[in-house]
């Protein structure tokens, strides 16, 4: 290793044992000083990277894990019939529950309710999502918003049906309301219904559709109002409430 190589490698991995040996061998006149400085810089970077970890994060991760035991690995041959059976059961359930729903609305409701179980921790968050982030993610979804009146405690881009949707949670007096915005979903009709224990509202919204999901639909009108205000649309609220 020559002096030039030594200096280059100080910026790649200053803790490499080979560099300590090279410094002892004085590959450069000031190799020891350069190594000491590089290690001090490394300590400086590491101190900066060591941001404080939120208290109880590990506990919250564990609490969000399913309580049941890990499913055993199954053969592919066995897995697909089980998946098919589960899908058919879900379809049967949804057909029974929202039998009058138009097809696009029906499948959007099923997909939204199913998605709730994928991100259960979304409902437990309390910090307000920064407005800049809300605006930016909606701009990317093709919708210009004035989000100042929208208090979101959760925002994520999630796969729903065949595209990416915005999955949000809004705190409300009767409990958190999950809001899904599905860009491009234009065949959905306005509807208030229930699927199992979940109150659901669907409505056409901007260039797509919106789905509200909560334990009760009592806050849906207020939430819908807030979204119409955010887009500057005229209010057209339904009267459905528990």
């Amino acid at each position: 290793m020559n002096c030039s190589d030594f200096q280059r490698r100080l910026l790649i991995d200053p803790r490499s044992p080979e560099l300590a040996e090279a410094a002892q061998a004085r590959v450069c006149d000031d190799a020891a000083t350069r190594l000491t400085e590089a290690l001090a810089f490394e300590h400086y970077v590491e101190a900066a990277l060591a941001v404080a970890v939120p208290s109880n994060l590990a506990d919250r991760v564990l609490a969000a894990l399913p309580a049941d035991d890990l499913p055993a690995r199954r053969s592919t041959a066995l897995r697909w019939p089980l998946a098919l059976a589960a899908s058919l059961a879900l379809i049967a359930l949804v057909t029974t529950s929202v039998v009058r729903a138009p097809n696009a609305t029906h499948s959007l409701i099923a997909a939204s309710v199913e998605h709730l179980s994928h991100e259960p921790y979304a409902l437990t968050r309390s910090a307000v999502v920064p407005q800049t982030l809300v605006d930016r993610m909606f701009t990317e979804a093709g919708l210009k918003l004035n989000s100042s009146a929208l208090a979101l405690s959760y925002l994520n881009r999630c796969p729903l049906k065949q595209g990416l949707s915005l999955h949000m949670v809004m705190p409300a007096p009767e409990g958190p309301v999950t809001v899904m915005y599905v860009p491009g979903e234009q065949k959905v009709e306005r509807m208030d219904t229930r699927l199992d224990m979940v109150a659901v509202r669907t409505l056409p919204f901007a260039n797509g559709a919106m789905v509200f999901l909560a334990e009760s639909n009592r806050d849906f009108d207020r939430i819908e109002n807030a979204w119409h205000q955010a887009t500057g649309e005229a209010l057209a609220l339904a009267a459905g409430s528990d």
């Binding site: 939120p54 919250r60 991760v61 969000a64 894990l65 921790y121 968050r125 959760y154 994520n156």
Partner: peptide
């Protein structure tokens, strides 16, 4: 925090 939760 969400990334860590979802990843686990």
């Amino acid at each position: 925090q969400d990334l860590v939760q979802e990843s686990f």
